[in-house]
């Protein structure tokens, strides 16, 4: 149900780090609208950097990243922020939740800065997602939650803004197998419901196997797999 998320087009993308060191180089990568992509590769190879680049969180040295018609590399900081708020949900490595807030407030954090008219929608969706992820009426603060529970709060937060692009950075790392499987189920079901495009960085073969396609990043270079 719902329209499908935008396709991704990456062309001649180069991201540089300290002293001009090349962190990532992507000559060409496409993702069909509503499609899903898995990224694997050794630690420190540039997987997170790739996610940050397609989320518009860092300034590319050159090249283009475009979601549908929206060339994120051509936008200024404020427009990229607005684009993320409206279109992109991110599940960070290590969750990066707010320890001082409860599960519901974490999931609905976007209500604090969204336009007034959108706040109720965000809160309602966050509550709905949490209850469907088995965390209804959860008011323990984050430090009291288990790893799996935090991961689900992070997913709820990523999707509470009704994003049609979902980026997940090693979402099942540090989870035991049953919890990881349930989280992957949740993630994929939510994405399918929303029609969202999904990019997930993971070493988890069971997750990668359930995505449309996968690539591998080594030393900042993309190797297209199957």
């Amino acid at each position: 149900m719902g329209a499908s998320g935008p396709g991704l087009r990456v062309e001649d993308l180069i991201v540089r780090g300290d002293r001009g060191r090349e962190l990532l180089s992507v000559p060409r990568l496409d993702l069909t609208p509503g499609g899903s992509l898995g990224i694997s590769g050794p630690s420190g190879s540039g997987k997170s950097t790739f996610l940050f680049a397609v989320a518009g969180l860092l300034k590319a040295a050159s090249g283009t990243v475009a979601w549908g018609d929206a060339a994120i590399t051509a936008m200024g900081e404020a427009r990229r922020a607005a684009f993320r708020a409206e279109r992109i949900g991110i599940v960070f490595q290590d969750f990066l939740l707010f320890d001082e807030l409860g599960a519901a407030d974490n999931a609905a954090i976007a209500a604090l800065y969204a336009p007034r008219g959108a706040r109720d929608g965000i809160r309602a969706r966050a509550g709905d997602l949490l209850s469907r992820l088995g965390l209804a009426d959860e008011d323990r603060p984050v430090p009291g939650l288990s790893g799996g529970e935090r991961q689900r709060v992070a997913v709820a937060r990523a999707m509470a803004g009704n994003a049609d692009i979902l980026l997940a950075d090693e979402p099942t790392a540090n989870l035991d197998r049953p919890t990881a499987t349930r989280l992957v189920d949740d993630l994929l079901v939510r994405c399918r419901e929303r029609g969202a495009s999904l990019i997930a960085v993971s070493h988890d073969e069971t997750l990668l196997a359930r995505l449309d396609r996968r690539i591998e990043i080594r030393d900042g270079k993309v190797r297209l797999d199957g």
Binding site: A81, I90, Y113
Partner: peptide
């Protein structure tokens, strides 16, 4: 610092 970075990564305006 980190939490503020998370907010901005999620799409909060810098003004927030």
């Amino acid at each position: 610092r980190r939490q503020m970075a998370v907010l901005r990564a999620l799409g909060a305006p810098a003004r927030f």
